[in-house]
């Protein structure tokens, strides 16, 4: 653990600043919100235990990603295979690309704000219901009066549109 109050403060400051990127890393490795939350929590605890090993003069995120890789793999090994989206070897193979993407998390989140504003209110409601309300495609089909395949397709198109919009925004405002 960090050895002095000043070290602790610097460590906590770095961890709080970079926690969203770490959460994005866990989410992208596991593709499941709950698993990602558990892996993030384990990562934060592990980072705190190892805080004495962190040199405040070096970049925090690469060191933290290395710890996160380990806890994600440990999480996968503790889970039943049928709950996982990716196989372990795929998670390992994707780790580098995931670090690159997660490093850009804050920037992409910022760009997403203006992309969301362009959506129709009913499409925002659909995303809200699915990703936050936890409503299944079938439930959303019932509440919107659309067929299940139509709801699926709208959700898919919205995700594509938003990612493409983020990419465009990044090109415009590098």
């Amino acid at each position: 653990m960090a050895t002095s109050a000043q070290d602790s403060s610097r460590f906590i400051a770095a961890l709080t600043r970079h926690q969203p990127a770490l959460e994005a890393f866990c989410h992208a490795q596991l593709a499941n919100r709950q698993d990602a939350q558990e892996a993030l929590q384990a990562t934060c605890v592990k980072l705190w235990e190892k805080s004495g090993e962190w040199n405040a003069e070096t970049e925090f995120l690469p060191w933290a990603f290395a710890v996160a890789r380990f806890t994600v793999l440990s999480h996968i090994r503790d889970r039943m295979r049928d709950r996982l989206v990716f196989d372990e070897d795929v998670v390992l193979a994707m780790a580098e690309e995931t670090e690159v993407a997660a490093t850009q998390f804050e920037e992409r989140r910022e760009m997403l704000g203006s992309c969301l504003e362009k959506l129709k209110p009913e499409h925002r409601d659909l995303l809200q219901g699915h990703y936050i309300g936890g409503h299944s495609v079938r439930q959303l089909s019932g509440t919107t009066g659309r067929s299940e395949s139509a709801v699926k397709m709208i959700l898919l198109r919205l995700r594509e549109q938003l990612s493409a919009c983020i990419q465009r925004q990044i090109r415009i405002c590098p």
Partner: peptide, 22 residues
């Protein structure tokens, strides 16, 4: 692999934005 990582990071950003609004 690069595209999947990017899409899932964007999904996390989307969840964060929607959660804040919610």
């Amino acid at each position: 692999r690069a595209a999947m990582a990017r899409l899932l990071v964007d999904e996390q950003a989307l969840i964060g934005r929607l959660r804040d609004d919610s």
